[in-house]
Design a protein around this nucleic acid. Structure first.
Lengths: 188, 188
DNA sequence: AGGGTATACTCAAACAGTTGAGTATGTCAA
DNA sequence: TTGACATACTCAACTGTTTGAGTATACCCT
């Protein structure tokens, strides 16, 4: 007797959305999550395999095992009609903003009682990390812009990338704002 | 035998950071999380009380019960020396970007196989929600700007609010981008 | 009485996510 | 042989978070 009345379970719906376009092996799904899905959904390989197992039990996906030479067999997962129906059912519901839990900002709050130098270095490290992500997304963007007459699905996928790029730029901008504040020495 | 070697536990450290400045009742801590902490850390009331109990067992905080007239007794929590040491220990470690899991973006990805009208309405709803949050933060910002010679802690707290404001503005901008795309009918 | 609000706090169950640790097949280099 | 990498997949334990459901004191309104 579950106590939950709502079941967001958006990882499975993310997988369903990815499979809507084409069937993929579990490994290739995992690769998608490292690449084009990474700007809006993070999931580990273990999580994905586990979820696929559950989704198959629920009849949303089905797999066929394909033997390979020199490599292990792979399981190609495809979405079922029930899976498409489930995706549409979920799609009609509301979305919720992701709960925000930013430990870097907790450190900003604690900085008056701690070492501002440590914070400064962490801000620089984080700025660099977000810059690298942005650059990676910009490389992906340039590939979208090479498409001459992109299919509808590609256009929508591009919009998800745009969000990722804005998010990383936003982080860089905020880091710069805090770094400027710290370097101006106004806290001394 | 725990399998974990790392223990981020940043909720407790957020509470420690909040208590660094002043002792507060559990209820008031919860109120802080609804207000000034909300732009960088979300936690439920239950979660906060539970965490305070754990933190007290670990000696990081201590409470005194204060009887009140017409209201239940309240527990005022204060940070201990051990709590301050724990906060500093944690402070020196690296931060990690929050894992991103945005169901609205999954819906953008699924939109070619579903109703674009539903997406359009959801984007407008979300835009409104993020605008309301931004306006709320702007009200908070104007209070910071009334301070003539703000203490250091207030200046750092203001920087956390700046992040919240940028984040909400970023969402609004992205929603506008997608709405423009949908309304231009380029997906037809 | 019931419903709403506020101040104050607590218990329980379920679940999604994280971490650790593998498995199988193969290639290449030191 | 070992270590690194790639393609492919699986199991187990733990934990933070969410959801549901309260508790206590009081006030106000229908």
């Amino acid at each position: 007797m579950g106590k939950r009345t709502l079941s967001p379970m958006a990882l499975s719906h993310t997988i369903l959305a990815v499979l809507s376009r084409e069937s993929l092996s579990g490994y290739d799904i995992s690769k998608r999550f490292e690449e084009s899905v990474s700007c809006y959904w993070q999931a580990s390989q273990q999580q994905i395999y586990r979820e696929l197992g559950k989704m198959e039990q629920q009849g949303w996906v089905i797999h066929e095992t394909v033997p390979q030479v020199g490599k292990p067999d792979k399981k190609i997962y495809g979405i079922t009609d029930a899976g498409r129906a489930e995706l549409l059912r979920w799609y009609d519901g509301p979305t919720e903003p992701t709960p925000i839990r930013e430990d870097l900002l907790v450190k900003v709050l604690a900085a008056p009682y701690a070492s501002v130098d440590v914070l400064l270095q962490e801000l620089q490290r984080r700025r660099q990390l977000h810059l690298e992500r942005l650059i990676n997304y910009q490389v992906m963007e340039s590939k979208y812009q090479e498409l001459v007459d992109p299919p509808k699905a590609e256009q929508f996928r591009y919009l998800t990338l745009r969000r990722g790029m804005r998010y990383e730029q936003d982080w860089i901008d905020w880091c710069d704002e805090v770094l400027d504040f710290l370097k101006a020495g106004e806290h001394s």
